[in-house]
Design a protein around this nucleic acid. Structure first.
Lengths: 337, 337
DNA sequence: CTGTTAGCGCGTTCAC
DNA sequence: GTGAACGCGCTAACAG
């Protein structure tokens, strides 16, 4: 059948057989040479390699995959739209780079709709990939469990909502939020608000927990205001916090976008930052360095997470056992707190 | 052979033959049903579909590709590291989304080293992809020409350095720079400097040309200072411009990062922006909205470019003829000019 | 060390 | 409308 209207007029490329004929050996021998099998005499190998070069022979990936029942391919499943673009970009870059270096290929898939979830599972079952790297998806995410059942190696970015044996890489969200909170406490701040982003995200939940625990250790109670992940909702959330507690002297936001909104909200409410009100963000996006005052925030190293994901997948492909990786989150102190 | 230490203990998935046996028809009939061939009686089709569902049959992609000599796959070649991350992100998202919607798969490749160029060409020749989307690569870039010779449909992001028949998508870099320059001229600015990023990039060359032409139409001569694409080099470039021409009253930078550096340089030189010195950037990165003063800049719509690239590739895959697409660039006026 | 042979799973004529 | 048979290009087990 022909799905498009194009006649396949492309000249056929040389095959193993072509090369074998030229080098006057059998297909099997050519295959051995091409795949680096040691059991070939130097002279024969030499003449085969010459034939390969002269003909410009490149092995057909589909045929090889069919015969080996391997694909040498890893699926990278992105959830777009997302907020943490720097992390996504780093993963795309490093996972591809590391796995290409190991002779693997990357096939990209988007998990935006539930229909796409079905398709992704289907692709894995169609043996399009030997392994799957899954970036955080919104919601209760049955995709991870579904993929875990396909017996293809699976590595997650971000701690899964429900505990499982699937290895994952994550930033120390709780630790980072705790460090930020302790920084505020050391400054003598005692009425600290929390502006938190989409609460269905595990990362946000972890940041909330870290903040709450740090406050608790100091014998304080949290003041929480919910938001999504836009600057506008951050400003609104700050306004609500100020209405509840006029003497608020600090806020931690679970993302930089929210914190930037809080900076704006503080200006609108006539509070000086950091004198009247300290503001701390989370994520260290590029814009955080350019706000006035420059934003103090928690940095989570997208690059390190991306490389850890890549290494974890490589280990899994080689059949090694793996455990979760949690990378440190560090407070970057600028002017806002 | 076995390249990794893993025994393939995975249970075999059902094949066409399995389904055929279950539905009590021949393989050929199942194939017809699966591929939507009309010439099958409704009852038979129904029973085949039932067998497919019961067995959870998914066609093996490699086998199909081997038989059809098609891959239903498009290679997306990224050049990382790059500056224009928003554009890369948009392309990854939209190209994947649009092509997946058309039943294609995306294979991701990195063109960072010259060795990777070789590998990419090899992948295309190995019939891993039916088409290639190529993002701008650094330097004189023989990769585009090399790929053009593989007779696989090729679409470029960004005008190629040398003219060719390969379809491409680009922003109107020259037009955007001209618009920015004319905006400055309308403000009565007459001593306008240009801080320009890596000059080997075609996009930067086009922005320089647009600026020069607009000045020329006003009977003015350009003041050019070279930089890379960092804020630091932007600040240094501004310092050089001011040393050459103390009465400089405006600068256009070929990127927002350079413009942000120019803002800093202006502050260090004691010039007020925009009163003493107007500053205009290019690209409208997120941070541009958060600088003080907020940066006036040229926006080039990554989203539209990405969608245009996706549509162009789809057209090419369907054998239709295509022509380059150049998308408008619009000045976003904020406070810095 | 090398060649022969038998699949891998699917699409596609060509008869029926 | 349906089935039998061949080929896609490669790997792998087995002889020799």
């Amino acid at each position: 059948m022909r799905r498009n209207g194009l006649a396949d007029t492309r000249p056929r490329r040389p095959t193993l057989e072509t090369v074998a004929a030229r080098a006057k050996v059998s297909r099997a021998t050519v295959s051995r040479v091409v795949n680096g099998d040691a059991a070939v005499s130097p002279e024969v190998r030499e003449s085969v390699l010459r034939a390969v070069k002269e003909l410009g022979y490149v092995p057909n990936a589909a045929a090889r995959s069919l015969a080996t029942r391997r694909t040498d391919t890893v699926a990278l499943v992105l959830s777009i739209p997302r907020q943490d673009d720097a992390l996504t970009a780093a993963v795309v870059q490093y996972v591809t780079s590391v796995l290409e270096g190991a002779g693997k290929r990357i096939i990209l898939m988007l998990a935006d709709t539930s229909e796409s979830h079905r398709r992704i599972a289907g692709h894995v079952e169609a043996r399009l990939a030997d392994g799957v790297v899954l970036l955080p998806t919104d919601g209760a995410d049955p995709l991870a469990e579904r993929l875990a059942r396909t017996d293809a190696p699976l590595v997650l970015l971000g701690r899964p909502a429900i505990n499982s044996l699937v290895p994952y890489v994550d930033a120390d969200n709780a630790g980072g939020a705790a460090a930020a909170t302790e920084h505020l406490l050391r400054q003598g701040r005692r009425r600290i608000g929390l502006i938190c982003g989409p609460t269905h995200l595990v990362a946000v939940q972890d940041r909330m927990a870290g903040h709450r625990d740090a406050l608790q250790r100091a014998g304080l109670l949290p003041h929480v205001s919910l938001a999504d992940d836009t600057a506008g909702s951050g400003a609104a959330a700050l306004a609500r916090l100020l209405a509840d507690e006029r003497r608020l002297d600090a806020v931690l936001a679970t993302s930089d976008h929210l914190a930037i909104g809080a900076l704006r909200g503080a200006a609108e409410a006539g509070r000086r930052v950091p004198d009247d009100l300290a503001v701390v963000g989370f994520g260290d996006i590029e814009a955080a360095a350019y706000t006035t005052p420059a934003l103090t925030t928690v940095r989570t190293s997208p690059t390190e997470q991306a490389m850890a994901v890549a290494r974890l997948m490589l280990s899994r492909l080689e059949g090694r056992h793996t455990t979760p990786v949690v990378l440190p989150a560090r407070l970057v102190t600028r002017s806002s707190a």
